[in-house]
Computed example of a mutant assay.
Amino acid sequence: MTDALHPAAVNLSDIDRTARLLADAAREVILPYFRHSGLASENKLAEGFDPVTEADRAAERAMRAILSEQRPQDAILGEEYGSTPGTSGLTWVLDPIDGTRGFISGTPTWGVLIAVSTEAGPIYGMIDQPYIGERFIGAEDRAVVSGPRGEVLLKTRSTRHLSEAIIFTTFPEVGTSEEGGAFRAVCEHVKLTRYGMDCYAYALLAAGQIDLVIEAGLQPYDIHAPIALVEAAGGIVTDWQGGPAHAGGRAIAAANRDIHQKALDVLRASLG
């Protein structure tokens, strides 16, 4: 592995400074569209519903413009405009509005996702909720949220038993019928199941409010920022087999290794 790819050689201070510029720019672009009665959306899918709005596209363009000035050597992977190559070994992974369904519905559960990753996975992650004014940031072993209460350090919960756990996912069906069945098998063991929070569920996990987020059908730009944030707060994020999750697909985020293993055992047993 070259120095450029090794986290020890990365200037996290400059990454954080740049990420905050990106988030500020995205906030400025997005907020005029939120809860605007004239907002139009397009469906990306021939079957099903995956909306995109001008707010998504404009926010990603604004962030890409800053990166082209501030860090032109880095690669970019964005939901709306795809991949741009780089030479540094670092990739900025951008989802300008994670939770566009919530965005067009007026719920403040969507967020701007900004991550920086090496080939091994994310090393910095931000979940920014412009309307509430909360910004969750995680890197290395430090995670913080800034918002109405100032800046607060984040730490995941120590829940050890599924019977005490709170679990989230975005869609009730989760993914395929098989994946949905596996998720519901975990739900049979927990105290409370909630739906529809998009990236904000991962922020709540990092903040110590909930214990598990289980999802399927994810893209890399959906999960890179949550991985960095949750793990910096003391949690763990893997795929449903316990391996790396940054390629997307199935992901389980947990507050600690004990609750992660218990939920993983149920998923595996259900999938066979």
Rank of each mutant, 00 (worst) to 15 (best):
D3Q: 12
A4M: 09
A4K: 13
L5F: 04
P7R: 07
P7N: 02
A9N: 14
V10A: 10
N11P: 12
L12P: 02
L12C: 06
S13V: 13
S13D: 12
D14M: 11
D14W: 06
D16S: 10
T18Q: 08
R20F: 04
R20P: 00
L21D: 12
L22Q: 05
D24Q: 05
D24L: 05
A25F: 04
A25L: 09
A25G: 02
A25W: 06
A26D: 00
A26L: 00
E28D: 11
E28P: 12
E28L: 11
V29Q: 04
I30N: 09
I30P: 10
L31C: 01
L31N: 01
P32K: 06
P32H: 14
P32T: 07
P32Q: 04
Y33M: 04
F34T: 03
H36W: 01
S37N: 05
G38H: 08
G38V: 03
S41Y: 09
E42N: 13
E42V: 07
E42I: 03
N43W: 01
K44D: 08
K44H: 07
K44T: 05
L45N: 13
L45T: 09
A46M: 11
E47K: 12
E47Y: 08
G48I: 12
D50V: 10
D50N: 14
P51H: 13
P51W: 09
T53Q: 08
T53G: 11
E54R: 04
A55E: 05
